[in-house]
Design a protein around this nucleic acid. Sequence first.
DNA 1: TCAAAAGTGTTAGATTTACACCCATGA
DNA 2: TCATGGGTGTAAATCTAACACTTTTGA
Lengths: 224, 224
Amino acid sequence: MTFYKEHSKVWVSVDVIIFGFDESKLKILIGRRQMDPGRGEWSLYGGFVGADESLDDAASRVLFGLTGLRNLYMRQVGAFGSVDRDPGERVISVAYYALINVSDYSEKLRNEHGLEWVEINRMPQLYSDHNKMVKMALKMMRQKIKTAPISFSLLPQLFTLTQLQRLYEAVLGEEVDKRNFRKRIKEMDFIEKTELIDKKSSKRGAALYRFNKKAYNEDPNFKL
Amino acid sequence: MTFYKEHSKVWVSVDVIIFGFDESKLKILIGRRQMDPGRGEWSLYGGFVGADESLDDAASRVLFGLTGLRNLYMRQVGAFGSVDRDPGERVISVAYYALINVSDYSEKLRNEHGLEWVEINRMPQLYSDHNKMVKMALKMMRQKIKTAPISFSLLPQLFTLTQLQRLYEAVLGEEVDKRNFRKRIKEMDFIEKTELIDKKSSKRGAALYRFNKKAYNEDPNFKL
DNA sequence: TCAAAAGTGTTAGATTTACACCCATGA
DNA sequence: TCATGGGTGTAAATCTAACACTTTTGA
């Protein structure tokens, strides 16, 4: 059966924006493009959508190839389809963003792919319309992080409240009042204080917290 | 030049969700599918993306063919790409939603295309994943209408505050307090009261208002 | 002993919500 | 004259934002 044969087909790719949080900075993972056209330009990492895989599957595949990690938090940003967005051919691209905990990520893989972590507010010019994708992804992520517990995907399992606060500051791009912030955290029972103390960040040491996903699902009242 | 020839191409279509507001109800325009596969099922209206048009252009084209109207408020909902979402072939679809003022819309065109206005909360089952598209579009539109002046795209140029209130109630799916609503409207100087009185809706008559786009652009402080 | 980060409450102001009656008119 | 939708203000409650000092400890 070929129902639609009078219409033309196009290439469809996925591009992934990988957010990470390190040194109190929000960063994304970019590399030098390895193929023509645009070889050598800074670029997001992407891949073509296969005939037998969904868009989400294609994005997961690209993400796995890049990070060795599965089941990352991932959301679609949207489809980008200007006729001349790709200098070579007509390619429609669907952008996704994903969140990773930088300490889960292997330096080896990063080097193999020639990738760099770049601070979100020091982004170079990227290939094609990739800057637009990043901008939209960031906008969506900012929105999301205020109402859903996605921040924990960017942090180690155990984290201090200062780390969490720095993360919000980095994502939102504005300072946050420490006391008001901690007040709100205390109201969320699914952010649990552990007995453990982190001594790396200060002499006095800071309590380590943990996100309890099960408790969250029972009472999903996240609000920052 | 054919850079990507080793990869497979797919069909890409756009599907448009057309919102209208009538009789205090939020409605969408759907029709019976005219082609195989799925002939006769309730469906959104769509079209294939041509080789030389952008996604947005394809959506505008479909929208124009359907309504005879250009420059409608239109936003992308996202790309839908399950492998088997279309029973015939592999087709990736990008959904858009658009807002129209029902009274601008010609009954003639509606009949020609065999379209019906269906209340959003009486939606029948639609072809393929179209219900999912509608659900996402509605969610996005609800979000948008709280922070951007898109409601005026669903109303005639002149409207009463009761109409505007009913629109919000229909979109948000909840009742709104009349006095609080009007208080907030008064704060937005770009919603201008005219000298005109609408006598259709009540014996006493209600003042007609107008959205001043220019004034809005100078001070875009929409907040409902 | 001191520098550096952790931790902790209160108050004023702003925003949000709840709520009920009179008005004008055509039928 | 009365039924119908139009139009108006206040007060309580909640939420938000501003703000400063003590604690602990390793160097």
